[in-house]
Write a protein that binds this DNA or RNA. Structure first.
Length: 205
DNA sequence: AATCTTCTCAACCGCCTCTCT
DNA sequence: TAGAGAGGCGGTTGAGAAGAT
């Protein structure tokens, strides 16, 4: 049934990483570089799933990670990016050097969501909570259009459907000319057709 | 001091996309 | 073109910490 597991779970450790495991992983990546995650655990002498190694490295061990509290500026950047991109944490993280998608996702769920709610802003739509009802109507009508597009084959990715359904959002980050709204913010963030968005360029195109 | 509740965040899971053959 | 393998993503979970009673 379905796909085979990414690794042999019977012989892998789970849960929190030990210091020794961290050191092994760091030493191996220093010696051989990133990549080859499926074979890495055995090569590094780790009883871990390759995915787990990758996650540990990217989210915790990478030397260029910033760690520490988010600044007010970072907060606002995340909020603005979320308004544009929705829950595409990896894209948001790409605009925040030293921050990881997992870290931003956690921070959003624990801090920013609450912060927006306290401001009277719906964290999903970024609209004032009072306006949520009319916004929902607008979303419903837009979804109909989207479904029509999907049925005609223009939308195939399920993940795209997770994007916030706000009519005034321009998610065509890659193929459209610079948006007229909030030009300074777009400029500041450098949202262009650069490599990190390759994947989304394709799906959005 | 002990217990309960809430919060935080590292880690896991399953799915999707990309690349190679 | 199809299939398999690998990388990557977002949602969710759960252990430990912190705060409240």
């Amino acid at each position: 049934m379905g796909r085979s597991p990414c690794c042999e779970k019977a012989h892998t450790n789970k849960g929190a990483w030990t210091k020794e495991e961290d050191e092994r992983l760091i030493a191996h990546i220093r010696a051989h570089g990133e990549g080859g995650w499926r074979t890495l655990p055995r090569a590094a002498g780790l009883l871990r799933c390759g995915k787990s190694c990758r996650l540990r490295w990217i989210n915790y061990l990478r030397p260029d990670l910033k760690r520490g509290n988010f600044t007010q500026e970072e907060d606002e950047t995340i909020i603005n990016l979320h308004r544009l991109l929705g829950n595409r944490w990896s894209l948001i993280a790409a605009r925040l050097p030293g921050r990881t998608d997992n870290e931003i996702k956690n921070y959003w769920n624990t801090h920013i969501r609450r912060k927006l709610l306290s401001r009277g802003v719906d964290p999903m739509t970024h609209r004032p909570i009072d306006e949520r009802a009319p916004a929902t109507i607008a979303i419903s009508s837009e979804r109909k259009e989207e479904e029509q597009q999907q049925s005609s084959g223009e939308e195939s990715s399920a993940r795209r459907q997770q994007a916030p359904k706000c009519p005034d959002l321009n998610l065509e980050l890659c193929i459209s000319p610079p948006p007229r709204q909030e030009p300074s913010f777009q400029l500041q963030l450098g949202i262009t057709d650069s490599a990190p968005e390759r994947r989304d360029c394709k799906s959005l195109g």
